[in-house]
Simulated assay, not measured.
Amino acid sequence: MISRSTKFVTHPILQSLTQTPSFSTLPSSFSQIPKKLHHKDWLSPNEVLQVFTALQDPNSVLTALDHYSKRKDYKPNEALYTLIIDKLARAHLFDAVDNVMNRIKSERKCRLSDDFFRGVIKNYGNVGGHIKKAIQTLYDMPRFGCWPSVKTFNLVLHLLVSTKMFDVVHQVYLMSPQLGVEIDACCLNIIIKGLCESGKLDSALQVLDEFPQQKCEPNALTFSTLMHGLCVNGKVDEAFGLLKRMENEGIEPDSVTFNILIAGLRKQKRYDEGIELLEQMKLKGCAPNPASYQEVLYCLLDAQRFAEAKQFMIRMVSKRVGPSFVSYKQLIQGLCKENRVEDLDWVLRQMMRQGFVPKMGMWRQIIRSVFSKKSNHYCVSCEETIDDLIT
């Protein structure tokens, strides 16, 4: 007798025909699409943003975007495009970013702002290191119906200078009329920085004449950049000439300006002039910043005037300016060299108060200096004792 309970659907193929499809049995690309995009309910822009924000796998972003684009309520906006491109850029999926940008250009579903393109340029340039794509995005902006602001234009110039693509800076600069960009002082300052860093100091100085032609006024940053370029190349006196020029033009020098000059004098071993300039800047109504004091301290250390350096360091600490680890190290080395053991205690204590820990070599110098101070002769056994004390 044949039992009525016999199961006829036993073959795997027959079983699959009787089962309801689930996301686990669908293709992987389909399962990556958020469930909300499968619903027929109308989605608001905020709901769409929430869907794409919740995506954990950046590789699924384009799949989700393709699925969303087939819905009747498909209406992308700048916030959505920004979110998508940021997600893809953080995952370094820049081919996918290209895909989205091409989609935007062909669909023209919404109007995009200058802020959006500035974000895209930052992603291409700063995140991905794709400088050419950053430049091309700037050039393509009018095709998207958006003209770049001078802020976005300057971002590209700064990107080129920071990556040392100096030859391209001038090419982009010449594109400003075609892009409808009105040059400002910031733009010219970036050009000057690029020329200085590429060693073209004469050309950088000539840009000063470009300011009135562009109806701009140079500022302290303009002169500071030029002064730094001159000082790095040993032309400190020419840098002081620029200081006089800026004062004659009514532009007040700031602490950065004076710090550059002090560093330039120090490089030429004109230590006394550097130390004196700290007092001069006060007389001119410019308050020194921590870097100002640090540069003067380096002047004293380079001049091997260690007793004065210690006193100046005390002055810095009283003004709540913390000396650098390097300056502590140089001062300890100098005091040990001169066997000024009595000065070491304050320096060590202050160093550790600031959170710096003396290294093994520094302790070796200090203990060696103490031993040699107490004994006129130095022997091998003393060296062994020092090693025992340290270890």
Rank of each mutant, 00 (worst) to 15 (best):
K7C: 11
R353M: 11
K70L: 15
V120P: 01
Q365I: 04
L277Y: 09
Y378S: 08
K200V: 12
H130L: 02
M313Y: 14
L301R: 04
V181Q: 00
L157H: 09
R320T: 11
D57A: 09
E107N: 09
L348M: 12
W147A: 13
T25N: 15
L138C: 02
R71A: 14
L242K: 00
T82V: 10
A79W: 10
D388V: 06
F306N: 07
K244A: 10
V127W: 12
E276H: 11
T82Q: 09
G180Q: 08
H377V: 13
E308T: 05
Q32E: 15
L112K: 04
S369G: 00
T53L: 00
Y139R: 13
L331I: 06
E279I: 14
I260M: 06
I390T: 01
A134R: 05
D115N: 02
T63Q: 12
P142I: 14
Q19V: 14
N339A: 15
R111G: 06
F116D: 01
M141T: 00
S31V: 09
F371S: 03
K122S: 10
K193W: 12
R71V: 11
S16T: 14
L112N: 01
H67K: 13
Q206L: 11
L112P: 03
L138N: 09
L283T: 06
P253W: 09
I131T: 13
I386M: 04
L62G: 08
M101G: 07
V347I: 07
E295Y: 06
Y271S: 00
P358K: 02
